[in-house]
Design a protein around this nucleic acid. Structure first.
Ligand SMILES: Nc1ncnc2c1ncn2[C@H]1C[C@H](O)[C@@H](COP(=O)(O)OP(=O)(O)OP(=O)(O)O)O1
Ligand SMILES: [Mg+2]
Length: 768
DNA sequence: GGCCTAGC
DNA sequence: CATCGCTAGGCT
């Protein structure tokens, strides 16, 4: 479990007498080599939902909601800069500085104390859950109300304890014209005292003992840093914002002809020889050399051979004993190309090779762009490195916003004033292709994307060099565009989408290339005469609403613009696991039982490995079958589900038990026979103790209990082939039909909208 | 719980 | 005909 980001553990306090604002201005900013982003200085709250968290650490301050328009009446940032005390050159043991806080109040009443999220919820979904500086971490002795204007400033450190607390009153400190009421705010901070020291006083980073700086100078550096970060995240075009309103940098990585690469590596087939992976008679992956010969996925083997006789074919691994009626789970496979012992009638495909390679890739990505702060590289606040979402067996999304911040901060720290080196990352000779022309280092968003491109390059280099796989990447401000981009230049390339290129990109973009629009939803839009996103946008007003309703219409329109605030979710583990086999029609219950057994064997094996690796076990089990309705083949799968049977002694499931439980579920179906396909699925994982033994031994102790809970009446009927068949006919798309298209899209929007209004914490739930 | 859409 | 095998998520 990742420890959620938590502004807690340490706090140093700063007093900022108003008159010191003048002093601040006297410090030429160019001398403060912090990462500074040019942006217009209007204030908006960073994270509206976070504003409602109990962030106050001044006693008695009540959380305050933002104004109706989502903004809050916070004046300029200037005052937070300044004079410090108790700000040690040594990083305190409890953590690193993560935020600046400033509270001010005018005479007589406590500051409203609105807390603004000190962390971006995008980059750190967990932050929503962190109580921030809850009452528990409250500073002592923050009286809040005073006679004159008071200011309370703090540097918040990780963790939670409050080291000290200090107020500044207008009177006491110095005359300065007092400003009025200033609600408290928090600013994410990108540097620690140490980095600030080095940045300011030029000690080589290896220098053991940097000279302590004058506290005020240091503080202003810290504050400028925070300020610039703050500014850069305000007032973004909708397209660039996440749900939090912050700019993001999103990568989409997609392995090139994935299964082919796995097999070519395994079988030592050179990349430039035409190669395809077959599953029985169909191709499921085709490498680029073979694509050049016109071979495509879903081609039949004979067809492909016709196009390209020298095509190297590799069959996916198959399991299950060939032909014999018993299931002995022997892993067989058909060599590189030709003679393999494989029998479609008795064996099933096994995709474990690709799953396991996928896990390695994910692990490497995770390692290369760590989610946690580097232990030695403590110069940063503990914003997480990257959020990784496994989107399929060969794709990931990564939110590298925090990494980009970090990189830019480090450049600033190093006074690496080589703005020209806003390179697109060419370390490996895999330059990015930038839509709409080269990136402009003068544009902050493009600069950020350039850093994202470098990160992508680094990640691809790691995958290439350490695992031998090439992949392509898209770099953009949201998932939608990043995915479009990653597919635009393949193989082994990456594509950047700067905001200025989006309109042109979308204008011509075929709908099929947009996630969620490749199916029936896209087909319906095609019925309206649209084949590109631009054409959808050109539809007469009301046309979309008429067809899809206002909600879905709004979602569709946003997508057509290239807008999406869908967050990159922390997801690296599968939520369900299934084994499936389709076969020729069978009415034999022995054959069905045998298939169930083979499926269960595979599943049991995978489950054991997963349990050992991830300390979890599934609670639900379901059987999917394809049968007939009214005696005629029905291509629509149906399913029966129940709860998992009890695991064996060591938490390991035996294939027998699994198979029997599946069979019991199937018995509850009256239309499963004749049967054309079976699948067994497990899911609903829950934490479980690690099993100490690997599955082989536990097989001995198969608890006889069949189906765990419900369905005590397992012995119900089996036959009655001609059942009442309550099924409808294949529905013509008339007006009365349920209109299910585009629901996913709309639901995601609603979810985030409610997140903004209600509990921000609910948006992301942790992995089990 | 069961079915549907969308994707790789 | 129904290309296979697999995953995620939505609605009722
Ligand atoms: N319909 C399918 N049935 C079975 N396996 C599939 C299917 N589609 C894709 N796969 C598998 C094989 C692919 O190598 C892998 C990744 O898919 P995908 O990324 O779409 O293509 P690809 O990785 O083969 O080529 P590309 O270079 O275009 O990404 O998933
Ligand atoms: Mg791919």
């Amino acid at each position: 479990m990742e420890a959620p980001f938590n502004i807690r553990e340490f706090v140093a306090l700063v007093t900022i007498p108003p008159e010191q604002e003048v002093l601040l201005e006297a410090i030429p900013e160019w001398k403060v080599p912090v990462y500074r982003r040019p942006a217009e200085p209007q204030f908006r709250p960073l994270v509206p939902e976070a504003a409602q968290l109990p962030l106050d650490f001044g006693a008695g301050e009540a959380p305050r909601a933002p104004d109706a328009d989502g903004t809050a009446s916070v004046p300029r940032l200037a005052p937070e800069l300044l004079q410090t005390q108790a700000f040690d050159a040594e990083a305190p043991a409890g953590g690193l500085p993560v935020a600046l806080s400033a509270t001010a109040s005018s005479a007589g009443r406590a500051a409203p104390g609105a807390g603004y999220g000190a962390v971006q919820s995008q980059a750190t979904p967990a932050a929503g859950r962190a109580p921030g500086l809850g009452a528990s971490g409250a500073a002592e002795g923050e009286p809040g109300a005073g006679a004159a204007t008071q200011a309370h400033y703090a540097v918040l450190l990780e963790g939670g304890s409050v080291l000290a607390s200090r107020d500044a009153s207008n009177n006491g400190a110095a005359g300065g014209g007092a400003s009025g009421s200033r609600p408290r705010r928090l600013f994410p901070m990108l540097m620690t005292p140490l980095s600030g020291l080095r940045a300011l006083f030029g000690g080589p980073s290896s220098s053991p003992a940097p000279a302590p700086p004058a506290a005020p100078v240091l503080q202003s550096a810290v504050a400028v840093c925070a300020t610039t970060l703050q500014r850069s995240r305000r007032q973004l075009p909708a397209m660039q914002r996440g749900a939090s309103g912050e700019a993001r940098c999103i990568l989409h990585l997609d392995l090139d002809c994935y299964y082919c690469q796995v097999e070519q590596k395994r079988c030592n087939i050179p990349a430039d020889t035409p190669c395809a992976v077959q599953q029985w008679e169909g191709l499921i992956a085709v490498n680029y050399a073979a694509r050049a010969a016109g071979i495509t996925r879903h081609m039949r083997v004979w067809e492909a051979k016709k196009h390209c006789p020298e095509l190297q074919l590799v069959h996916v691994e198959v399991i299950g004993k060939e032909d014999g009626p018993q299931g002995g789970n022997k892993h067989g496979e058909g060599g590189t190309g030709a003679a393999g012992v494989r029998d479609r009638q008795s064996q099933k495909a096994c995709l474990e090779r690709y799953r396991s390679a996928s896990r390695e890739i994910i692990a490497l990505l995770h390692k290369t762009a760590p989610q946690e702060r580097h232990p030695r590289h403590q110069l940063m606040c503990s914003l997480p490195g990257a959020v990784l979402e496994k989107a399929s067996i060969d794709e990931v999304y990564m939110d590298v916003t925090a990494l980009v911040d970090k990189e830019l901060q480090e450049r600033a720290d190093a006074d690496d004033s080589a703005p020209g080196a806003c390179g697109t990352g060419d370390a490996f000779g895999w330059g990015s292709i930038v839509l709409g022309g080269p990136l402009d280092p003068g544009c902050e968003w493009e600069r950020r994307l350039a850093v994202g491109a470098q990160v992508a390059c680094r990640l691809r280099g790691a995958v290439r060099q350490q695992l031998g796989f090439t992949c392509s990447a898209g770099i953009a401000c949201n998932k939608l565009l990043a995915k479009v981009a990653s597919a635009m230049n393949k193989p082994n390339q990456q594509t950047v989408v700067p905001p200025r290129a989006v309109a042109d990109l979308m204008a011509e973009l075929p709908l099929k290339k947009l996630r969620n629009f490749g199916g029936k939803l896209g087909a319906e839009l095609a019925e309206l005469g649209c084949s590109t996103a631009g054409q959808v946008l050109a539809l007469p007003t009301g046309a979309l609403e008429k067809r899809f309703g206002p909600q879905r219409a709004a979602c569709i329109t946003a997508a057509m613009h290239g807008c999406s605030d869908e967050p990159v979710m922390v997801r690296e583990l599968p939520k369900t696991m299934l084994a499936a086999k389709s076969f020729e029609k069978t009415t034999s219950s022995a054959a069905i039982a045998r298939w169930l057994r083979i499926l269960a064997e595979e599943l049991a094996e995978r489950l054991a490995a997963d349990g050992a690796e991830n300390a979890r076990r599934p609670r639900s089990l379901s059987v999917t079958y394809r049968g007939s309705t009214n005696g005629v083949y029905n291509p629509t799968d149906r399913s029966k589900s129940g709860s998992m049977p009890r695991a064996g002694k060591n938490g390991v499931y035996s294939a027998e038990v699994l198979a029997e439980a599946a069979a019991a579920l199937l018995r509850r179906a009256d239309d499963a026979v004749p049967c054309y396909r079976l699948a067994v699925t497990v899911g609903d994982f829950t934490p479980a103790a690690l099993s100490c033994e690997q599955g082989s031994i536990a097989r001995f102790f198969a608890p006889a209990a069949a189906c765990g809970s419900d369905s005590g009446a397992a012995g119900d009927q089996g036959a009655s082939p001609v059942a009442p068949a309550p099924q409808r006919h294949p529905q013509p798309p008339d007006d009365t039909a349920v209109h299910r298209v585009g629901l996913t899209l709309a639901a995601a929007y609603r979810r985030r909208a409610s997140g903004r209004l209600g509990s921000a914490a609910a948006i992301q739930t942790p992995e089990c």
